[in-house]
Amino acid sequence: MSDEMLEVGVNVPDDMSPPPSRTFQSSAEKWLAFAAPYLFGLFFLGGWEAIVRIEQIPVYLLPGPLLILHTLITDFAILLPNLIVTLRTTLLAFLAAAFGGLLLGLLFTFSRWVERTLFPYAVILQVTPIVAIAPLIIIWVNNTQIALLICAWIVAFFPIVSNTAVGLNSTDRNLIDLYRLYGASKVQTLFLLKLPSALPYYLAGLRISGGLALIGAVVAEFVAGTGGTQSGLAYRILESGYRLEIPRMFAALLLISLTGITIFVCLSLLSNFLLRNWHESAAGE
């Protein structure tokens, strides 16, 4: 009895740590392992800056990283409204996908018929390139903002539906038996057992969809090419390209990347927070 209890707290299974040949032994090595990606980034950016300066490459071909950073700061007032527009489209599409995907995933597990009937179309929607259908959607839907939203939603929707459906179907059979044994109602089984079981899968779907919603929004903006006050970062990239304001174009691109990274990090933090106590994917955080 007491021997078992001693094991509490040292519960990291052996297979959690990397194999011996791949562990970093000394503290210097550990520091290097931590710094390696940053060092590579610095090396890359430094090389870029050096080549631009030594070869005297004109800014309309390739601006250096320092100039891009400088442009991002000076032009931030111009870029901010575009960022807000793109961000709004992305977030609304993401939320619609998060809720819609959950609902459809639930519907799939409740009715095999619904799944059999609708799932092929969800797949078709997913595999058809959004660039190809965006022009149609923009023609059909009068309001450009809503058209963009639909495009971003189509891209973000599928991973959530399929992950939710897989998650709901992968509930431990024995636990389902246990619920049956104690005469649990359908509602109890759904809320106490099936939804919690599906949570890690759902969160994984959210993490994929967050990035996809941004990509969908930007692609649709490119296709729509709207000007005026309601234009997003993609429009700013197009416009800067036409005007040969290449540093601003890069600054807008950088902003899109930063947005994508922020979305991913936020969703990862949310996932790790919700699964911190029980799921292997959040282990060792």
Binding site: D172, N174, L175, D177, L178, L181, Y182, G183, L193, P196, L199, N277, W278, H279
Partner: peptide
């Protein structure tokens, strides 16, 4: 089914990890 009268222990612990 005699619900409360039976306790069942499965081959695996079958606990809710959450």
């Amino acid at each position: 089914r005699p619900l409360e009268q039976v306790g069942f222990v499965f081959q695996e612990p079958t606990l809710q990890p959450w």
